[in-house]
């Protein structure tokens, strides 16, 4: 190979899109590179014949395993709080970052929650009670007036409370300032109301206490209970809260 011969990566690009590269002339004139390309094509054929059938199942299983996705690039999953059966929400993919101009849309309270829905080319701010695709991808941003211990959770018509952020640890995430919450989530595809709740406590607030307060405020599970549960009672003094209702549509 001479110094002017294309790299392996350039040849990969050529294999992907021959008309999109400027290598055709070189390949016609350079026997070495033509041979390299032929070898690469043969290796690709070998992959499809032998490697792919033997390994695709493991790749599919890895793709379907939420725990793998959770650790990647600070995504967080919507982890079901009730034993894992009939998961409410699950992680799927990373939506784009929300636009920067949303702060203030939730008023001037001590805690503001913004939910962004990725159902088009760019994320859009969801309004309270808005219909969204049942499997929409979501991202979240919080505006806080002072540092606090944050929980983000959701509750659905079956009464299932899901822990969204933080996904690990006790006491809630210590948040110093308004921020995009790392990661995102995807709704589970089940039609019905879903309420996203943010709690911001002045001191560490145990998950059990947060979950219990939400359950008590929901009362009997059902769609109307979720729609009415805009205010969570039984929280420690000084705990700020905000929530947003989403109507998941098929």
């Amino acid at each position: 190979m001479t110094a002017r011969c294309p790299s392996d990566l350039a040849l990969e690009r050529h294999l992907l899109s021959p008309e999109g590269t400027a290598l055709i002339g070189h390949l016609a004139a350079c026997q070495d590179c033509a041979a390299r390309l032929a070898t690469m094509q043969r290796q690709g054929d070998d992959f499809l014949r032998f490697v792919y059938p033997a390994t695709v199942e493991a790749v599919e299983a890895a793709a379907a395993r939420p725990s793998l996705a959770l650790a990647w690039r600070r995504w967080f999953a919507l982890v079901p709080a009730l034993g894992g059966a009939a998961a409410l929400l699950f992680f799927l993919a990373r939506p784009q970052a929300p636009p920067d101009d949303y702060l203030g849309t939730k008023g001037g309270g001590p805690l503001g929650l913004a939910v962004f829905v990725q159902d088009g080319p760019s994320p859009r701010l969801a309004r309270d009670g808005e219909p969204v695709p049942a499997a929409a991808a979501l991202r979240f941003r919080v505006r806080i007036a002072r540092p606090c211990h944050l929980w983000l959770l959701s509750v659905d018509a079956r009464g299932q409370v899901s822990r969204l952020y933080p996904t690990a640890g006790e006491g809630g995430a210590s948040v110093e300032q308004s921020a995009d919450l790392p990661g995102g989530a995807v709704l589970d595809g089940q039609p019905g109301p879903e309420r996203i709740v943010a709690l911001c406590a002045p001191a560490p607030l145990g998950w059990a206490a947060a979950e219990s307060a939400v359950r008590a405020s929901l009362g009997a599970p059902g769609p109307d209970s979720v729609r009415r549960a805009a205010s969570i009672g039984g929280l420690p003094a000084g705990t700020a809260q905000d929530s947003l209702l989403l109507e998941k549509k098929p």
Partner: peptide, 9 residues
């Protein structure tokens, strides 16, 4: 199937 060949190579 699409990108595996590049990884394998």
């Amino acid at each position: 199937r699409t990108w595996g060949p590049a990884v394998y190579r």
